[in-house]
């Protein structure tokens, strides 16, 4: 009898999970921690099943999942000309949608759900905030309009959002320099 060795299912990319906890006594960067990296389907679930659900995190915390080598911040070379598809949730949606949306987001990422445009994806971030949670998919270049809009359409579909609901894409450069709480959308789908 030949026993097949258990072969894990490799992902196209290696991904890193980062955790951010808001501690006002520390610098922003010191609050951001790399938790672990994974590059197989099995290792992804082993991690996912063993960490706190997003809806159970305290306010001010983030999870970020980025391709290995890209830091979850605007300053990273691969992010600085990029932007994000942003999903803003109402307070009630923390209990009904947040965990599902975040899981679907991760499946889009690790499964390379945007076809060849997946190479434009840098990562995804979920912010848990008292005033309303946010989930975003970050892409590398706002000028790659075809990639950005394709990713946006597929992402919206992946989350199961109704066609009439419009989601927006914002350039990090605009978010970083905004003088009020409203950042203009560069694309919408």
């Amino acid at each position: 009898v030949v026993v097949e060795p258990h072969v894990k299912h490799p992902l196209q990319n290696r991904w890193a999970l980062w955790f951010y906890k808001n501690d006002k006594s520390k610098m922003w960067q010191d609050n951001l921690r790399l938790i672990t990296k994974f590059d197989t389907v099995e290792d992804f679930w082993a991690l996912y099943n063993n960490i706190q659900l997003v809806s159970k995190l305290s306010s001010g915390c983030d999870y970020s999942v980025f391709k290995d080598g890209i830091e979850p911040m605007w300053e990273d070379r691969r992010n600085k000309c990029g932007g994000r598809w942003l999903i803003t949730l109402s307070k009630q949606q923390r209990h009904t949608e947040l965990d599902r949306f975040w899981k679907e987001t991760l499946l889009c990422l690790i499964g390379e759900g945007f076809g060849s445009f997946s190479r434009d994806v840098c990562g995804a971030v979920v912010n848990v905030r008292a005033k309303g949670d946010k989930i975003a998919v970050w892409t590398t270049n706002t000028e790659n309009g075809e990639a950005v809009t394709y990713i946006g359409r597929k992402y919206k579909e992946g989350l199961g959002l109704p066609p009439k609901l419009v989601i927006g894409y914002q350039a990090h450069a605009d978010t970083a320099t905004k003088s009020n709480s409203i950042t203009k959308n560069k694309f919408v789908v």
Binding site: H9, F44, W45, N49, E104, S116, S118
Partner: peptide, 20 residues
Amino acid sequence: GKRQYKRDFLLGFQFMAACT
């Protein structure tokens, strides 16, 4: 080729490790 995995395929593995 690119390693693309469909959602349902990925979901199929979520509890596999816990069952074996």
